[in-house]
Computed example of a mutant assay.
Amino acid sequence: MKMKNIEYFDDVRSLQLSPRKFLSADHDEIMAGYTTDIYFVKTRDLLKENGRLDVPVVAEIFSKESGVFAGLSEVLSLLKDKGVKVYALEEGMAFSPKEVVCRIHGPYGSFGMYETVILGFLASSSGWATAARECVKAAEGKPVLCFGARHVHPAVAPVMERVALVAGGCTGASCILGAKLAGAEPQGTIPHAAVLIVGDTVRTAILYDSVLPEQESRIILVDTFKDEAEESLLVARALRKKLDGVRLDTPGERGGVSPSLVREVRWRLNMEGFSHVQIVVSGGLNPDKIRLLSQAGADVFGVGSYIAHATPRDMTMDLKVIDGTPIAKRGRLPGIEENPRLKRFL
């Protein structure tokens, strides 16, 4: 049964929800207008009464601060077949404060009610992309993996991890759906739970090697039971050339992953002929920590909370032209603000 679209205030009043397991909106509910702010629905009633619901307008979207643009693919899915033209930056492009990042031409009634949704797509995704890009820049060419799924609601985790790859520049993501949406395979080792249950890091490493396909990287956690440098050597001696890397995820209660720890692990691995073994670091990383750990010899960085907890870019949509006449509310400039970097997508 087709879901009824929200068009006017009476539709909202009559909306009845069935019991649900999870509280997130599904795709059909977003398309039907269930996640919009109520005042845009009331506006439709007002404009219909006035005969102005489908007046042609131009709307421009900008952010008050700089960032990396993302979220456009979802906006385009929302507005496809709505009879509008969409001009925007490409996902992954950096933007400046107040720069127009997206422009929509069309009848107000075709897209106005979706302002909440459009801004939400762009605000959240651009925030995640900006944080991911900061980490990627700090790593200076070394791989950065997004491990942020556990820090956000599972309904948006795939959105975040996909954005971290396609717009932020991360080389991998741990969330299965997020990685697949980005055209990549999910990446990650095993949790401490596996090592704790097996009861020994070397035994875990041998089992890991025995059950994984050959093409999968052998990267082993080495901070569960013993000193990280000691466990790194024990695992390296067991797997030899098969070992691709060791992962340091030392908790804050033990001082976290420090530059001195990374230097020691690197030194000891090199001394025993294991220079091919990479050092993967994770646990509370941010751009400053990435720079320090990279200088100390870390090769790969797993970033979770810094990307997941990124501040959304505060996006605003303004009507700038109505029925061919330039117009704007006080404090804004009437008429189109040209941006040659915009490209037509719809």
Score class of each variant (00 low, 15 high):
5 N>R: 15
10 D>C: 09
11 D>V: 13
12 V>W: 15
12 V>F: 14
15 L>I: 12
17 L>I: 15
18 S>Q: 15
24 S>W: 14
29 E>S: 15
32 A>H: 07
33 G>M: 14
33 G>P: 14
34 Y>V: 15
37 D>G: 14
39 Y>T: 12
39 Y>D: 13
40 F>K: 10
42 K>C: 13
46 L>S: 11
47 L>D: 10
53 L>W: 11
56 P>L: 05
57 V>H: 08
59 A>T: 09
60 E>D: 10
61 I>S: 15
61 I>P: 14
63 S>V: 01
64 K>W: 14
69 F>E: 09
72 L>W: 03
72 L>I: 02
74 E>C: 12
74 E>H: 15
76 L>V: 07
76 L>G: 06
77 S>P: 05
79 L>R: 10
80 K>A: 11
80 K>S: 11
82 K>H: 14
84 V>S: 12
84 V>F: 11
90 E>D: 07
90 E>C: 04
90 E>F: 02
91 E>A: 05
92 G>R: 01
93 M>W: 00
94 A>N: 09
94 A>Y: 04
97 P>W: 12
97 P>Q: 12
104 I>K: 13
106 G>K: 13
107 P>K: 11
110 S>D: 12
118 I>S: 04
119 L>Q: 15
119 L>A: 14
123 A>E: 14
127 G>H: 10
131 A>W: 13
133 R>F: 03
135 C>G: 05
136 V>S: 02
139 A>W: 07
141 G>W: 01
143 P>E: 03
147 F>L: 06
147 F>D: 07
148 G>Y: 03
150 R>V: 03
158 P>H: 08
159 V>P: 13
160 M>R: 06
161 E>M: 00
161 E>I: 00
163 V>F: 03
166 V>T: 08
167 A>Y: 04
170 C>N: 06
171 T>L: 08
173 A>T: 08
174 S>P: 06
177 L>R: 13
179 A>N: 05
179 A>I: 00
182 A>F: 02
186 P>S: 01
188 G>M: 03
189 T>G: 11
190 I>M: 04
198 V>S: 01
206 I>M: 03
214 E>L: 07
218 R>H: 06
220 I>L: 04
225 F>L: 04
227 D>Y: 03
227 D>S: 08
228 E>A: 06
233 L>D: 10
234 L>K: 13
235 V>Q: 01
235 V>A: 00
236 A>I: 06
236 A>S: 09
237 R>F: 10
239 L>F: 06
240 R>D: 12
248 L>E: 11
249 D>C: 02
249 D>T: 03
250 T>F: 01
251 P>L: 00
255 G>A: 04
256 G>W: 03
258 S>D: 08
262 V>T: 06
263 R>H: 03
263 R>C: 02
271 M>P: 09
272 E>D: 14
272 E>G: 12
274 F>S: 05
274 F>G: 04
275 S>W: 10
282 S>A: 07
302 G>I: 02
302 G>E: 03
303 V>G: 06
307 I>P: 12
312 P>S: 07
317 M>V: 11
317 M>Y: 11
318 D>M: 13
319 L>Y: 13
320 K>Y: 06
324 G>Q: 05
324 G>C: 02
326 P>C: 01
326 P>I: 01
334 P>T: 11
335 G>I: 02
337 E>T: 15
339 N>V: 01
342 L>T: 07
343 K>H: 11
343 K>V: 13
346 L>G: 11
